[in-house]
Each structure stands twice: as C-alpha cells, then as structure tokens.
Simulated scan of single mutants.
Amino acid sequence: MPYPVAHVLFFLFCVGAVAIYALAGPFFRRELSFKDARKLLLLVFVGSLSTLLPDIMAVYNIFVNGNLDHCSIGSIMTHSLLFGFSAVLFGTFAGYAAYRESSKAASMAIFAGSAFLTHLLLDDIAEGGCAYLYPLYNGRISLFSIMDTGFAEAGGLLNYLAVSIVSVFCVFIVIMMALFALNKFGFEFGYGAEK
C-alpha cells in the first residue's frame, strides 16, 4: 500500500499538472484573485480527501486495533467502485455548499470521483489488484498485471495489446474525468489556429 502522501501527490501531479498549466498565464499576467485562490484550495481539499477516502479505516484501526488494516468497513470493501460513491456524494455536497449550483456540484462530484479512482489505480499498480467490482465479484482484479510481462506469459500478442490498451484507457478516463470537471471551474483549454 502506498502511503497517503503518495496517493495525494499522485492525484495532485496527474491532475495538478493541468491546473498549473491553466493557471500559469493568468498568474504571470497578475489576473488571479483571492476568490480564485479559494476555488483552487477547495478543489485541492476535495481531491485530496477523496483520494484518501479508501484508506479511511486505517485511521480508525491504527488507534483502536494498532494495525493498518484499511480495505473494508465491516463487510464493505473500501477499495471498490461501490465505495467510490461516497467520494461522489462528498464532492456533490462540497460543491453544492460552496457554489449553490447543481451543475457545479455535479462537476465537483466528478472531480471527487476521479480523485477516488486515482487511489484505486495506484493501489492496483502497487499491490496487484483491487476489489473493483465488490459486491458483484469479491476477488481482486488488476488492470495492470500483464503490462510488465512478455507476450508469451500474456497469452500472445493480441491479448497483451488488449490488456495494455484497457489499462492505459482506464488511466486516460480518470484524467479526462478530472479535466471535464475542471473545465466547469474555469480551467479552460482551447485551440487557436495558427495565423
């Protein structure tokens, strides 16, 4: 299990690179205000808390049981897409409390969901799988298990390519979710044809 700081940094650097790029121009033109800083801090807070949410039981267990068990609350697996709805609900609540607009609350929910998913992906890479599909399937599934093997071990070239595409596509989807949500909060990117 990567340490909590690794989860936060992974999320901030994957998604934060986009935010830094979007903020660089206005920062150097001195167009950023205190309101913009509050908006950015809210995004960092929601994203950081959401990316740590799957490990919430580690805090309880370290004080009560003296261990770092963290993968379940009772019988509910915290490293699953089902538990990811708690991050989505948190993002919705935080977005609505801050903006009082349902569209921004929905964007904050997507942002929180993408943060939660970065945690699952990082644990998948480090530990070789997560219980993504709990309660439908309780076993661990790894999106990245075949990527570091050869063609023969993966069952041939086509199987290796299919698994690799799925693995990279999952990371792509998580980053695109965050970009979609950030667009609603002013992090816009555009293409201007060269003249």
Rank of each mutant, 00 (worst) to 15 (best):
F185A: 04
F185N: 03
Y3M: 10
Y134I: 05
E153C: 03
Y132G: 10
G66Q: 12
T118M: 14
A115F: 06
L9E: 06
Y3Q: 10
A105G: 10
A112E: 01
H119T: 02
A105K: 02
G25E: 15
A162H: 04
C130E: 15
F34G: 10
K39D: 15
L41W: 06
F90E: 01
V44K: 01
F10P: 00
V64K: 04
R38N: 10
T118H: 13
S102G: 11
Y132W: 15
D124I: 01
V5K: 05
L117Y: 03
Y160V: 04
A178N: 02
V174A: 03
I73C: 06
A98G: 03
Y160W: 13
S102T: 15
S145D: 14
A178Q: 01
V15I: 12
T51D: 12
S142V: 04
A94P: 00
A152Y: 09
M108Y: 04
I76D: 09
F11G: 08
F63M: 08
L157W: 08
A115I: 05
I175W: 04
V163A: 15
L68W: 14
S75W: 11
V44W: 10
E153R: 11
V88W: 05
A131F: 09
M176V: 12
F13C: 13
S142W: 02
Y60P: 00
G150W: 00
